[in-house]
Design a protein around this nucleic acid. Structure first.
Lengths: 100, 100
DNA sequence: TTCGTGTTGACTATTTATGTCAAAGGTAAT
DNA sequence: ATTACCTTTGACATAAATAGTCAACACGAA
């Protein structure tokens, strides 16, 4: 289940754009956008930004979803996923503070 | 800075094994293990498990480090990395509970 | 029918990741 | 100074994952 794909599909529909039109605007093939919205292919960060712009949506939130989806993809079916996230978080906070 | 690499190097030394010997035991090229310990190449999960076994070390902890490193790699230089981790964590907890 | 919609699959190309190998340079003992 | 280890390095080949292209399909509305 790709929540990012669903969100971007909704946003596209709210913007009143067909797949083809949206795809043309962001300069990719329709097939790819279709697959991305349905979670069959991954979005790239650049594309998410382009689409956010096109749909006049909050790009920060979409990027956060994009990243979290990437992270979850790495951790799927891992017994220690949650623990790994905790460790990663600690590390990230440390790096942010100490600028390492 | 690869903390996993450093840890595995220490464990190897504590086990009194040279790079060559360790590499032979886990059936990979010395060059690769050398690069992995210094963070120049990524470990695979399977290799981490093999090494944990060889060094008689706690594989769970090493796997957690391995995963967290993977996650951090995806997030490096991202402005919203921390926010993304929070979202991912929430999702993961939800999935774990609901078994989705 | 024709038009616009989304979906599918086969195919190619490109980019990353992984593996192999030979050589270099260090250190210590003989 | 040669032998015997060790680790590191880089160039190269191979394999796998990802991304892009294209044509055709199915559906419903005009």
């Amino acid at each position: 289940m790709s929540t990012l794909g669903l969100k971007l599909r909704e946003l596209r529909e709210q913007a009143g754009l067909s797949l083809r039109k949206a795809a043309t605007q962001v300069d990719i093939d329709v097939a790819i956008l279709s697959k991305m919205e349905r979670g069959e292919r991954k979005f790239s960060k650049e594309l998410v930004l382009k689409l956010a712009d096109l749909y006049k949506a909050d790009s920060d939130k979409l990027i956060i979803d994009f990243l979290s989806e990437k992270v979850l993809y790495e951790l799927e079916d891992e017994d220690f996923g949650l623990e790994a996230l905790k460790v990663a978080e600690k590390q990230l906070k440390y790096r942010k503070q100490k600028n390492v």
